[in-house]
């Protein structure tokens, strides 16, 4: 297995556009470390191409961006990995799936009886908020950044040489730091025209509550299956 990375970057709606654009940070990290990263962008992020590239390159790490469910990961408007069909392609690899629910079944199954395989993903919907003023330029969206930079830390920590367990923990700690940040930095005085409420001893605005809730969802939902000690 080659010490290389395969990453899917579908782009056909605002969600996949955000996920793919914010993945630039992962690509930059790999380039800095001299680790080859093969991108499957847009229409390349389809099942046939994915299977071909996985078999040919035999990358140790695969990063999925896209929609998903408990039994499947989607690429560019189609399923690219499905439990019971081609999930064997994920076995014995390090996989990070930024897709809803995938860890719940597919992630668990593809790491059963594994030695070197590890799957980090979400056992519920991965959530993030976006600020519509930045829909045309997602990388300027500091609200989405709170969510997506934390999740980027999973693959980035692995790229930097950390174990899968440490990468998972680094990412989750960052989510908690971002929750602290939004609770403390957003002062209710800034939202005088809106309602505020007492929350854990702080005054916060309604959207802060919802942002904290979504970040907490990702914190609780981010899980690791397989070997926690494997490195890239």
């Amino acid at each position: 297995m080659r010490r290389e990375i395969l990453i899917t970057l579908p782009r056909y709606d605002d969600v996949t556009e955000y996920l793919s654009q914010f993945s630039q940070q992962i690509e930059d990290s790999a380039n800095e470390r001299g680790i080859k990263i093969k991108k499957l962008k847009d229409n390349e992020a389809k099942q046939k191409e994915f299977e071909k590239v996985v078999k040919k390159l035999d990358c140790k790490m695969i990063i999925f961006n896209g929609h998903g469910s408990a039994e499947e990961i989607r690429g560019q408007k189609e399923i690219i990995v499905k439990l019971g069909v081609n999930d064997n392609l994920l076995r014995e690899r390090i996989v990070y799936a930024r897709s809803c629910h995938v860890a719940f079944k597919l992630g668990k199954e593809c790491t059963k009886n594994t030695r070197e395989g590890c799957f980090i993903g979400y056992d519920r919907p991965f959530q993030f908020y976006v600020d519509t003023q930045w829909l045309g330029n997602p990388l300027k969206d500091n609200l989405a950044r709170l969510f997506l930079h934390s999740s980027n830390l999973v693959p980035i920590s692995i790229i930097k040489g950390n174990s899968t367990s440490d990468a998972n923990e680094n990412s989750k700690k960052n989510i908690l730091k971002n929750i602290n940040k939004v609770l403390r930095d957003f002062n209710a005085e800034s939202f005088k025209h809106q309602k505020s409420e007492d929350f854990c001893g702080l005054k916060i605005s309604p959207e802060i509550f919802k942002i904290a809730e979504a970040l907490w969802n990702n914190y609780e939902g981010q899980v690791l299956y397989g070997n926690p000690n494997v490195k890239l």
């Binding site: 969600v15 955000y18 993030f128 908020y129």
Partner: peptide
């Protein structure tokens, strides 16, 4: 101005 991405749909 906030939109939420949750599940398998657009935000």
């Amino acid at each position: 101005n906030l939109r939420l991405s949750i599940g398998s749909e657009e935000s």
